[in-house]
Simulated scan of single mutants.
Amino acid sequence: MRLGCILIAAGLLAACGQEREAAPAEAPVAAPAPSESSELSSALEEEPAPLPADDVDYQTLSGYDSTWYVSAGWPGEYPAGFAVLDAGISAPAWTVPNGDREADASCTLPQFANYQLWNTERVEGDDLRFFVATKTFPVTLNQNASVEYISDGEIRKLELTAGDQLTFLRYLGEGFTVLSFEGVEYGINEAELRDVSDIGSMPTVEDQWVRVTCADGSQPWLLYAAMIELDGVVPSPMLAYGESWDIAPEDVEQVRAEAEANRLAYEGLEPGVLE
């Protein structure tokens, strides 16, 4: 059966400087007549999936300073991952997962392993742990605004005034981000802020970490951006939402070819131009 691989957009962006571009502005939604029941805009119809339950204090474990927001899980409606296609891959690894540190260990990984949040068998079997460190930045309102956010499954309003400053903490998925205002965290769709603030003026910088189990039984940390630079390792393919598993041996060359085609497409090149 043909393996229909879809290279995750988040994976491509993380591979290129770890910056996530702002999504294009959405068309405004006309307000319904007073006699009609109000419907949520498309940007607010679905609440983002909750972060994975995890009791580890990753901020303390990693040593990132207060200018970084550290939390469990990886961002994106299709979280990134990486698959090991070749045998004998030895990856740079960290005993302390912090982007300001140099790799101080190495880790030999099993061939065909796919390190992705939805690959339950691999996650449970290797006791994988995922977290992301996001560089925070200020978001300033340029006009008064009533911003909708989701809390306990309900739509609520956050009243803001021109000049108010929120802090961007992390991206979740489906357009939703976590921002703080006056010490309180809010799950807000970026579309709510795009026309009333400078949220699109700063790139999002993220370090995505996963703790793995190496061939020798050690459990260091791997950095996603470093992993997909290795020969024989590619961003995780996807079949469908919520589904992921290790790579079947007979699918290796197809996964490799499609990952390369997707890389070239992202860079605006045609297959074969580098040969």
Results as ranks from 00 to 15, higher is better:
E26H: 12
S42W: 03
A53G: 00
S35P: 00
S37H: 10
E26T: 11
L44N: 14
A53V: 07
S38I: 09
E26D: 13
E45V: 14
L51Q: 13
E36F: 09
P48N: 14
P50G: 03
A27L: 11
A53T: 06
P48I: 08
V29R: 15
L40K: 14
D55F: 03
L51M: 08
L44C: 04
E45A: 10
E26Y: 05
E45S: 08
A31L: 14
S35Q: 15
S37M: 12
P32C: 11
L40M: 13
L44G: 00
D54Y: 01
P52Q: 07
S41F: 01
P48H: 07
P50F: 05
P34E: 06
S41K: 14
D55W: 00
E36N: 12
E26A: 14
A30D: 08
A49L: 12
A53Y: 01
V29E: 15
S35E: 14
E45T: 15
P28M: 08
A53D: 04
A27W: 06
P28F: 09
P50T: 02
V29G: 08
S37P: 09
S35M: 06
A53Q: 05
S41W: 05
P52C: 13
E36D: 13
A43H: 11
E47M: 05
E45M: 12
E47D: 15
D54T: 04
P50M: 02
A49M: 08
P52I: 05
V29W: 13
S37V: 10
L40Y: 02
S37E: 09
A27P: 00
A33F: 14
S37I: 11
E47Y: 12
